[in-house]
Every structure is written in C-alpha cells, then in structure tokens.
Design a protein around this nucleic acid. Sequence first.
RNA 1: GUGACUGUAGCUCAACUGGUUAGAGCGCUGGCCUGUGGAGUCAGAGGCUGGGGGUUCAAGUCCCCUCAGUCACCCCA
Length: 425
Amino acid sequence: MPEKSLSAPRGTADLFPPESARWSELEARIHRLAARFGYGEIRTPMFESTDLFVRGVGELSDIVEKEMYTFDDRGGRSLTLRPEWTAPVVRAVLERGLLAQAPLRLYYIGPIFRYERPQKGRYRQSHQFGVECFGFPGPEADLEVISMAWELVADYRMTDAVLHVNSIGDSACRPMYRNALLAHFAPHLPSMSEDARRRVERNPLRLLDSKDPADLPYVESAPTFEEFLCAACREHFEALKSYLVLAGIPFVVNPRIVRGLDYYGRTVFEITSSALGAHSSVCGGGRYDDLVRSLGGTDIPAVGFALGLERFVMMLRAHEGGAEPPRSGVQAIALGAQARAVLVPVVAELRRKLDAPTYMDYQDRKLLAHLKIADRNRARYALIVGSEELTAGELVLRDLEKRSDRRLPLAAGGVLAELLVEATA
RNA sequence: GUGACUGUAGCUCAACUGGUUAGAGCGCUGGCCUGUGGAGUCAGAGGCUGGGGGUUCAAGUCCCCUCAGUCACCCCA
C-alpha cells in the first residue's frame, strides 16, 4: 500500500495569516452589528438528527436529496452535519420553550456543510452569518433584517452590491400563481430545455430563474407574482417597499428571485455582487411564517437571512487595493548572546505592557538581517542592543518609519519597559 | 451528480513534434558590508514533474485509473 500524502478534504480550506486576521476583523464587526440591533448570539451543535433537516428544509430540496453529510453514530442514530442554520435554531428555540416569550431576536455565525462539487464561492465547508427574528408578522421586521444585512455591505462600501426583493405570496395565493405559471409554460414545454421540463414537476417557480437561452423568451413573457398576490400579501409587500425607501436602502424588485428552500413565503430577498462568479448571491433571506409550526411549534411568524462569509470576503478583496498594513509594535534585536540575555526579560515585560506586538528573533544574525525581519513583521520600532550599547549602558530605539534613532538608558527591566511603553505609544 | 481545463522548487511559471544531467523569476540562506532596513550584485540550498499503472529503446510530455485544483451546469450562502 503506497503512502498517501495528507491533504485537506475536498472543498475545505485552511486559513493562515494575514487572511485569518481579515476574518477575525469581519467577525468582530458582525458581533458589534448584531449587538446594535439587539440580537443575541445562538450557538447550536454542528450536527443534528437527520430528520430535522428533512422536515425543516424540505424532503424534495436539493440539500436534502443530495448535499447532506449524513452518518450513523455508534448508537445507530442518523445524524447530519448542519447544511443550514435555520432549522437547528428553530429546533433549539422550541426545545427551550423560548418562543413563549417571543418576540425573539437571534443571530448565528459559524460553519455549514454541504456535499457539493466545489467551485468559485462554493465549498463543502463554508461559513454563514445569519439572523432569525421571531414573532413579528409585519413588514417592519422584514425591514429590520434587511437593514442589518445591508448595513454590513454598506459599511465596507461595496458599491456593486445590489439588493433584490420580491414576494412569493403565501399559502393562499401561491397555488393560484403556480397554476398560472403552469398554464403559461405548458404549451411551450416541448421547445424548452430538459431542465425546464424537469422543474415543472418539482417546483414551477424555479422555471423563472432558468439560465438556458432556450427558455428565456418564455420566462420573460411569464406572468409575474405581483399580479397574483392576495390583498394581504400585496399590502405587506407594498409596505416593505415604502419602508425601504424611507430607510434610504436602494433596492430593485426582481420577480425572478425565488429561493431554493421550501420554507420561504411572502418576502424573499437577495444581495448580489459582480465579484462573485456564476452564482452572484452573497446573502439570501426572507420570511418563513410556517416553519415553526411545521417543526412542531405554535404559529409564530419569522423572518431572517443567511450571509455567506467566504463570498463576503471575496467581495471585500475585490473592493480593496493592495494597501500595505500599517506598522505596529516593536522588534527586539539582540546582537550576541550577552545582549540577548539582557533583552529577553525586557521583551517579556513589553509583551505584558504594550498593546501592540513585540517580536524577537533568537538566532545569531547580522543587524541587517534583523532589520529585514523587522520590515517583514511590519514593526514600527526596532529596539537594538549590541556590545556598544552594553558598554554604554544604553539601547537604541529606532523608528523604522521615520528612520531615526534615539538612545535610551538601559536601566533595570521594569523601569526600562515603562520607558519603552511611553516612547512607543 | 455532469462537463471542460489544469496539476513541474515554498509561490508564479518554462521545457520544440516523446530524446542526455528538468530551467527561470520571486521568496529563502549566506557573501559583497566590524552595526542601520523594503534596493543592487554574486553564490548556495531547495524536485521521485500530485499518486498508481500502461505504451515505448526512451515519458514532465502519449494512454488508462485515481486524488486534487479551477471554472461552468444542477443548486445554494
């Protein structure tokens, strides 16, 4: 048996500096954003009973049919790595009885798993930030969650982001629209794509986002949902649109936004960016007023979204120039063993007291090599101690940006650190 | 699950129709330079050409399998 080289599983990725710092920064910003909107964080297990997703996401959805990481544990239970967050959140909230005190505002951030062929912006493990707002039937809650997603995008000045909104009706009017669509497409089906013919059986709404040129003329002439919305759904949608205008959030009404998961109804929305490749959506969400009941809870309306962090970071990169990160911190440079022995405790002290990185290379190198390392570390200061300094009882503090030296007395450790903290502040 | 393209040094890529010892740039280490930095120059280290099998006198190059990457389809964040 030949030895196999070890590699990360297909569709997964390792994250290293400096990329990992960008992620931390984004995550910190998300936590602050959610806090400002009054949302509390929920964390749920990374795997759940398979049945939860079958019931929550929909038996006929692609996720359940072919994308789940499902396995049996040693007790013979069928478990599944979560492919999305909403069903687990609803399960957790029901289990704890938290909906008794609805309204309830929760957000989550963490990994999801889908067994798919990887491509741009699509991985087998990816990460989502999302929110769930339970207990408000009205369009104010729709506006609230959309604002949150949009604020994140606007925060980073992503000028090519577009918000698409649509209404896909409720259980009263969707069947009527469905029938109208079927009636519209039925005579043309023979000349439409194979995919289209398949979709008719499964989910006629999906015909609307077909990309096949053969289908385009029929899709464009198809009736839109807006004509079929019942009075209640229409009123809800109109109110949301005027709220968006009042909030100054730019949007387009896109009758072809449908959403793939079974539980959505009324409001659906998406945020897209041209930086993202074939599937340009970075954030998708909407209202799911029937989901809680279908998972065994009481009749509680809900609205939320999920935002793909890998895709968001891709957008970020597309909008950033190659700006150099600012210099910060101190590179301690000891020339020789004696200097090193003096400097090591100073470094320890600095690391306790300085709110910036302190770097030190412990090998014997020339000053030149040490300074190159300082540059690579993007250190702001170099703290140099060699034989000259030792005899003079001094050290050199070099400002690497201004390229200027200062000499400071090489006093006892604690006092020295105080001095340096002050000098480098 | 389907299709196309691609796997050669740490990274980005060369190597005519199969032909001797697989090259370059960047990066790395060191010298030029007794101790002042993103530069220059010289030198050095670094490879079972993703893995396995086959064809051939001869395979980085052709064929098959496999793993992985990229992009697209299906679908989704």
